[in-house]
Simulated assay, not measured.
Amino acid sequence: MPLRPKPATQPPLPNDCPLEDVLSLLAGAWTVQILWFLRAGPRRFGDLRRDLARVSTKVLTNRLRVMQAHGLLEREVLPSNPPQVEYSLTPMSRELEPLLNSMEQVARRLKLHSHQVEKL
């Protein structure tokens, strides 16, 4: 006798729900790592480039532009010669900090669990 699928206990996402959009933005290359490093305060482009040693200049530039366009980052040109640019979190991206903290805690537990499984 074939199993009948269980009906969903949650209603489907409304058509105008932006959840998929924010998940897609956060899943973008280096987005979470950039947010992570900027939690401690503003960083210059070169600082972020060193923080994210494996990212290319082109990819980092593109990702910072996308994040700024979506309201996650503020970009300030510093009055120096040559001009330098500093990036910082916006109030909206600061709202993601508890999520980043929770993700770190879960990641640590998952890593510990995977090490325990490897020993079996």
Rank of each mutant, 00 (worst) to 15 (best):
99 L>Y: 11
35 L>K: 05
71 G>W: 03
79 P>V: 02
33 Q>W: 03
64 L>H: 01
72 L>V: 06
94 R>A: 00
34 I>G: 00
4 R>Y: 05
80 S>K: 09
45 F>R: 11
99 L>S: 08
74 E>I: 11
95 E>V: 03
98 P>Q: 09
113 H>L: 10
30 W>G: 00
94 R>G: 00
94 R>Q: 13
23 L>F: 11
38 L>E: 03
66 V>C: 07
112 L>T: 08
24 S>Y: 08
28 G>R: 12
77 V>S: 11
99 L>G: 08
55 V>S: 07
3 L>G: 06
7 P>A: 15
4 R>S: 08
37 F>S: 01
40 A>S: 14
82 P>H: 10
8 A>K: 01
24 S>T: 13
66 V>D: 13
54 R>G: 05
25 L>M: 08
114 S>T: 12
77 V>L: 14
60 L>Q: 11
43 R>I: 04
60 L>D: 12
21 D>Q: 08
40 A>G: 13
40 A>W: 08
105 Q>K: 11
64 L>F: 08
96 L>W: 07
19 L>P: 01
34 I>Q: 00
95 E>S: 02
6 K>E: 12
88 S>D: 03
113 H>Y: 14
79 P>G: 04
36 W>T: 03
85 V>Y: 02
60 L>G: 09
80 S>Q: 15
83 P>N: 01
79 P>D: 15
78 L>Q: 15
42 P>L: 06
82 P>A: 06
77 V>P: 07
89 L>G: 02
27 A>I: 07
53 A>N: 10
